[in-house]
Nucleic acid binder design. Structure first.
Length: 415
RNA sequence: GGGGGAGUGCCCGAGUGGUUAAAGGGGGCGGACUGUAAAUCCGUUGGCGCAGCCUACGUAGGUUCGAAUCCUACCUCCCCCA
């Protein structure tokens, strides 16, 4: 697998800086690239993710897309699975100490991360490493040695630390070591470049400092914008419920993309798709001149992103489904099936409230009652109005239950 | 180590012995409307087959007919001093 460092310095810089927020420092970046062209030795580009959650969303995917671009340029990319750092939890942008994960949870998450990263980068040409391989071997003495390269004042400069401190939130001593560990990863891997979100700036720069303190050529740092979630206000995050997960079905992903505020269309296009910058700006101009409906631009975005993760055919289907369901009020093609056991119900009669809870449409009886009272439930197109309604189990088989405007469930009765 | 403050529902925040399942806002969910899962407006937002009962105001005990409100200990955070 030989590197193809065929692009010129200018071309490389253009590709690398497209969409980036900062490159620190720019001149060092140029000289590193120049060196790699001259020596034919690819640069080592590092990106780390902590497997703290079971899945990634398209916000996490932004640096992966960039990593893919480095790959295209012929550089060698290293994806670090932070299985050790995940045990501590990155304090970046966190307003609370993260719950400690078990090694089993971390391992399970790590596997899905790799699976999902595969959709974006060429995994066969990438190096994937787990930082527990070196971090778990360190002795306290080593840790002290590494930690001595940092001062408390420097660590406290971090806005999120001081903010949490200010706001009276707990701050664990172990969390101070987080940037230190991430920095040490760079030393071990002798990284030339590390990329990450703007929230990672401090951690990325810590790597630079530690490499220098330990006699290495310090890495360059590239920060990438954080993608706002579907609410258009907050950084995309599962806990805020505004995320678009890479594991979302094509329909879900499509719908979520259609719900983003119009202003965000362009940012999403440039950070989450392979659309060319000039194409994006021409669509943008059409919309701004009133020649194109923003809805259509958004649909284009949704097709691109869904196509990226699910393939073009799926994306087209998702677009059709979306129109059918939301513009025409119809029923989607693929409906998730929920099974209920017939013999669980006395006299084989099902009380509507109990049905909703069994189908997990509502998590409690109270919620089910509220949904019915609010007119949000219908069965095969018939709105349920009577909270006391009961029906024989047999009649439910194959019926479609609809909650709100967009949740459909096909009921399957099993004996 | 000493002194002073604080901890309320998913989040923010009012409430200082009874009429408090706890004001208000945010978010969520549902309804109307819409190019849209946007914006706006309306409703709803602890559990339970629910005109009744149960559980809840950092944690654990205590005082009281009665506690989110008072007392004690512990945990966490803030401020001042060392």
């Amino acid at each position: 697998m030989c590197a193809r460092l065929t692009k010129s310095l200018e071309e490389q810089i253009e590709i690398i800086s497209s969409g980036s927020v900062e490159i620190i420092p720019e001149d060092e970046m140029s000289s590193k690239i120049k060196r790699s062209i001259v020596t034919g030795k690819p640069l080592r580009v590092k990106f780390g993710v902590d497997p703290t959650r079971p899945d990634l969303h398209i916000g996490h995917a932004v640096p992966l897309v960039k990593l893919g671009a480095f790959q295209e340029l012929g550089h060698s990319v290293i994806l670090i699975i932070g299985d050790f750092t995940a045990l501590v939890g990155d304090p970046s942008e966190q307003d609370a100490t993260r719950p400690i994960l078990t090694p089993q949870e971390v391992e399970r998450n790590a596997r899905t991360y790799i699976e999902q990263a595969e959709k974006i980068i060429d995994i066969s040409r990438a190096r994937i490493v787990r930082n527990s391989h070196w971090l778990s071997l360190l002795k306290l003495q080593d840790v002290l040695n590494i930690a001595s390269k940092f001062t408390v004042a420097r660590i406290l400069e971090r806005d999120d630390f001081s903010k949490r401190y200010r706001e009276g939130k707990p701050l664990g001593l172990h969390e101070f070591l987080y940037p230190v560990m991430q920095a040490y990863d760079s030393v071990v891997l002798e990284a030339d470049i590390e990329i990450g979100g703007t929230d990672q700036k401090f951690n990325l720069l810590a790597g630079r400092n530690l490499q220098r303190a330990m006699g290495q050529d310090p890495q360059c740092v590239i920060t990438l914008p954080l993608l706002e979630g579907t609410d258009g206000v907050w950084k995309m995050s599962k806990s805020l419920g505004n995320d678009i997960s890479l594991s979302d079905s094509s329909d879900e992903m499509f719908g979520k993309l259609m719900s983003i505020p119009d202003e965000l269309i362009w940012k999403y296009m440039s950070l989450s798709t392979r659309m060319k910058p000039d194409e994006i700006s021409s669509i943008r101009k059409e919309v701004e001149d009133g020649k194109k409906n923003p809805r259509d631009a958004k649909e284009r975005l949704a097709v691109e992103v869904v196509g990226f993760y699910h393939g073009t055919d799926e994306a087209k289907k998702a677009a059709e489904n979306f129109s059918k369901v939301f513009r025409e009020g119809g029923v989607p093609e693929k409906i998730p099936v929920a099974r209920i056991e017939a013999n669980r119900f006395e006299k084989r009669k099902v009380w509507i409230v109990e049905l909703l809870v069994s189908l997990k449409v509502a998590s409690t009886n109270g919620e089910a009652r509220r949904l019915i009272e609010g007119g949000g439930i219908s069965l095969d197109g018939r709105k349920i109005v009577n909270i006391e309604e009961e029906m024989p189990v047999e009649e439910l088989d194959g019926k479609i239950l609809k909650k709100g405007r967009r949740t459909f469930i096909r009921i399957e009765v099993i004996e």
